[in-house]
């Protein structure tokens, strides 16, 4: 059904509009912001020290739920637009088209899981905790898979050899694979993140590990961009710095989906620019 919706442009637009309205309603309902107060009242029931401190911090932090959900919704809109305007290329079915489509889907999964996790946080229904865990698994997996696919995409754009890309994909997937394994282990250990009984998300002691593969991929991506065009390296650096900047200034708002979206937007435009210059003119 999902594929049918994606194929049908009108269906996709309507589905996204519905999703957007649902997200608006969800943000308007009592959520993480209000939940901070609820959590503060229920601190007596919480036993772990981490859970004791979190609600106090929530009171002083800006509301991250609404901001994150809105940014994820914006990312989803961007993705829907890219899906529609790249439909012709997708039909062509070249390896770079497939990889680009994969990146779009990965980022959509990332944005949707991120928004859902934020919306579920602090909700007082039974399955909310499990759903938050599932959403975070999807989020972190997508967080690693996206730069991996992007690296393969650039690799194909440089070499134009599907066989070479297939071989290098095995090597490149190792960092992402490590994180996927850690994510599965995390379900028992809580090293990367955990969800408390009152359905609040907490980062684990080794949470920063998830950024290591992304950092590695980022360096490789910049190297590939340098081989394609030096100016593109500069563009890559600007986008990475923008991500860091957003993360620093708007700490409570999740910027990942939007950053990846900007990467995809820039990539689509650059690829189209080159196509126009090389093939048509």
């Amino acid at each position: 059904m999902v594929i049918d919706v994606i194929r049908n442009k009108r269906g996709l637009s309507r589905a996204l509009l519905c999703l957007f309205l649902i997200m608006l309603l969800a943000v308007a309902l009592p959520g993480r912001g209000q939940c901070a107060e609820i959590s503060a009242i229920s601190t007596e029931e919480i036993t772990t020290p981490a859970e004791d401190t979190t609600p106090t911090e929530q009171k002083t932090l800006p509301d991250g739920t609404a901001g994150s959900v809105i940014m994820d919704a914006a990312a989803l809109f961007f993705m829907s637009g890219i899906l529609i305007y790249t439909a012709l290329y997708r039909k062509r079915g070249r390896l770079d088209d497939k990889l680009f489509f994969g990146m779009v889907l990965t980022n959509m999964a990332l944005a949707a899981s991120d928004a859902t996790a934020y919306l579920l946080e602090g909700r007082a229904f039974t399955e909310a905790g499990k759903m938050i865990v599932a959403c975070n698994v999807v989020f972190y997996a997508a967080f690693e898979i996206f730069p991996y696919l992007f690296l393969l995409f650039l690799d194909f754009r440089v070499r134009k050899e599907p066989e070479h890309v297939r071989k290098s994909s095995v090597l490149y997937c190792i960092p992402a694979l490590v994180i996927v394994v850690l994510l599965l282990l995390n379900l028992r250990t809580g090293w990367l993140y955990s969800v408390s009984k009152n359905n609040i998300y907490h980062t684990g002691p080794y949470n920063d590990v998830v950024f290591l593969p992304v950092a590695v991929y980022s360096v490789l991506i910049l190297a590939k961009l340098y081989r394609i065009d030096r100016r593109l390296t500069l563009l890559g650096i600007i986008l990475i710095l923008a991500r860091v900047g957003f993360g620093f200034w708007f700490r409570s708002i999740s910027s990942t989906a939007m950053t990846y979206t900007l990467f995809l937007v820039a990539t689509h435009i650059v690829v189209m620019n080159r196509t126009i210059k090389e093939e048509v003119l």
Binding site: P62, M71, W249, F250, I253
Partner: peptide
């Protein structure tokens, strides 16, 4: 403040 931050964030993007 939360409202301002979200709006500013959207503006920056």
């Amino acid at each position: 403040l939360g409202e301002a931050v979200v709006s500013c964030y959207a503006d920056a993007v």
